Amino acid sequence: MTAGKPVIGILGAGRLGMVLARLATGAGYPVLIAGSGDPKRVALTPDMLAMGAAATSGPDAAERAGVVILALPLGRYRTIPADQLAGRLVIDATNYWWEVDGFPDEFTDPLTSSSALVRDHLPASRVVKAFNHMGYRDLEDEARPPGQAGRKAIGVAGDRADDLEVVSGIVDDLGFDPVIVGALADGIRLEPGTEPFGADVDARELRQMIDRFPDSQRGRRLAAALASRAASGSDH
């Protein structure tokens, strides 16, 4: 802990992971970052040397961090160290993206959200969805101090009020206005196929987009799947 701020562990040393690491170190958080390769190789990259984050392995970051951010492809969610993350607060920034993840049934099922898959893999962790819907370039370019005009918003979804409060504080520290979407299941309103996904908007507009979820492509797919399930159940 430094100045009351928890150590943030970031699983994923790609573009999103590095941007979040820069924002977090800039906000005064100690940061551990774990990529898929040798931590020594990650540690020697110019980005890592400039920001002052520490490179380590996934299990080590999971054990030592107070809060862990998942910034890796959804298709790798089974590699997340579940045992080390027991009891931890986990921020899920993953998304299903067919170009990377392919078309497995578990990812294409309209009744299942990416965060539900992560939560089921991490049953002893507290999972909150955030940082998944804004592109990494916008995250880096749009971070602003509190109260500054033009500040953009990040949606946050989770099942526990205290966890939502912690993650909202991190979102605020990293330069964005947090918008509570609802329970973790409501995080589906931030996924690909919705208005918020890829959007770079303020809190007021983000709330409006979230409210229009039923009219989005993802919302219509969910409604159709629910109707189909209800009809199938009534046939038996």
Rank of each mutant, 00 (worst) to 15 (best):
K5N: 13
M48P: 04
R151A: 02
R119Q: 12
N132F: 01
D120T: 02
M209I: 14
L174W: 03
T2P: 01
A86K: 11
I170Y: 05
I10V: 08
R220L: 13
V167L: 07
G9A: 07
L222W: 13
Q148D: 01
E142G: 04
P73L: 10
D105H: 06
H133Y: 12
F213Y: 15
A3Y: 01
R204S: 15
A223P: 13
D138H: 08
R151Q: 08
A153L: 10
A50Q: 14
D120V: 01
G66R: 08
I170D: 03
D141A: 04
T2F: 09
T45W: 06
R126F: 03
L44A: 14
D47K: 10
T108H: 11
V118K: 02
A224L: 15
T25C: 09
A55D: 05
P81M: 10
G14I: 08
A227L: 13
P196S: 14
T2E: 15
H133V: 09
P123S: 04
F107G: 11
Q84L: 03
G102D: 10
G233Q: 15
A50R: 10
N132D: 06
V127H: 01
R22T: 01
G233V: 13
E191W: 00
G26M: 06
E99C: 06
F213D: 11
F176L: 05
I8D: 00
A54L: 10
D211H: 15
R137H: 12
T79E: 15
A54G: 03
S234Y: 13
G150S: 11
A161L: 09
H133I: 05
G158M: 07
I80A: 00
G198W: 09
A183G: 13
W98I: 11
F131I: 06
L117D: 10
I91N: 07
E165W: 01
H133S: 03
S234Q: 15
A224Y: 14
S232C: 08
R78C: 11
A13I: 05
R76L: 12
V90T: 02
V167M: 11
L122R: 08
A231K: 04
H236G: 15
A153N: 02
P110V: 06
D83F: 03
D120R: 00
R220D: 06
F131Q: 01
I80Q: 02
V167R: 02
G233C: 10
Y136N: 11
T94D: 07
P145C: 07
A185C: 10
W98Q: 09
A224T: 15
D105Y: 03
Q84H: 13
A86M: 06
P81Y: 12
V156C: 00
R189G: 06
V42D: 05
A82I: 08
G158V: 09
F176G: 03
G135K: 02
D101R: 01
F107E: 07
P192W: 08
V179P: 11
N132Q: 05
D92Q: 09
P39K: 11
R137N: 02
L222R: 15
S114Q: 11
K40G: 14
D200Y: 05
L164V: 00
R144N: 12
R119P: 02
G150E: 08
H121T: 02
M209P: 09
A185T: 12
R15E: 02
L164F: 01
